[in-house]
């Protein structure tokens, strides 16, 4: 019987819904806004697990430059990337006010290094705009929607698209 209960309990750790779909369709979404490289961004607050202060990460070998490394998140190893670099901007300057936003996407948990967290906002659906098609390279396709706060543009990021792809373990190649 333990077995049955357990199997029922296991699937999906009641995690937040993965993706862009949260952004649309609901009357009011709750967003965490933050600054990064001088620009304003937001993520769905349901994707945010926690916000923690900056600590020096352990670098990863042969990783892309935006991968800052990994830090100890209460006993598990959390990968941290510099969001500014990920979006094609210069690296984030060292500053004690820098924070790591821990986001969750499916089973993956990732830390985003940003300048500072700003606010929690509840924009209504009609305040949100689609991202206009621009022939841009930088961070293209990372934002889902846009909206304006205090006359400044805020980009709502798609958590699934920010996360770098991981190479699959080799053992799968055997089968």
């Amino acid at each position: 019987m333990t077995q049955i209960e357990a199997t029922v309990a296991v699937p999906e750790e009641a995690g937040p819904k993965p993706d862009a779909s949260d952004v649309t369709g609901q009357d009011r979404i709750e967003l965490l806004t933050f600054r990064c490289g001088g620009r304003g961004f937001a993520v769905n607050i349901m994707d945010v697990r926690e916000i923690r202060s900056w600590s020096e990460p352990t670098p990863l070998p042969h990783a892309p430059p935006f991968m800052k490394g990994m830090v100890n998140l209460r006993g598990s190893v959390l990968p941290v990337m510099d969001l500014a670099q990920r979006l094609g901007q210069p690296p984030t300057q060292d500053d004690p006010r820098n924070v790591i936003i821990v986001i969750q996407n499916g089973n993956r948990v990732h830390g985003l290094l940003v300048d500072a967290v700003s606010d929690i906002v509840h924009p209504t659906d009609d305040q949100l705009q689609d991202v206009p098609r621009v022939n841009a390279e930088d961070g293209a396709g990372m934002a889902d929607r846009l909206f304006v706060v205090d006359d400044k543009m805020i980009q709502i990021l798609s958590t699934s698209r920010i996360l770098p792809e991981v190479s699959r373990p080799f053992s799968e190649a055997i089968a």
Binding site: T58, L60, P61, H62, A63, M70, N72, G75, V77, L78, P79, N107, R108, V109, H110, E165, V166, S167, R168, P169, F170
Partner: peptide
Amino acid sequence: GENFGHIPCVSAATI
């Protein structure tokens, strides 16, 4: 595992 995929030269991490 899932968060990192395969990293060359590294088998795992520790604290």
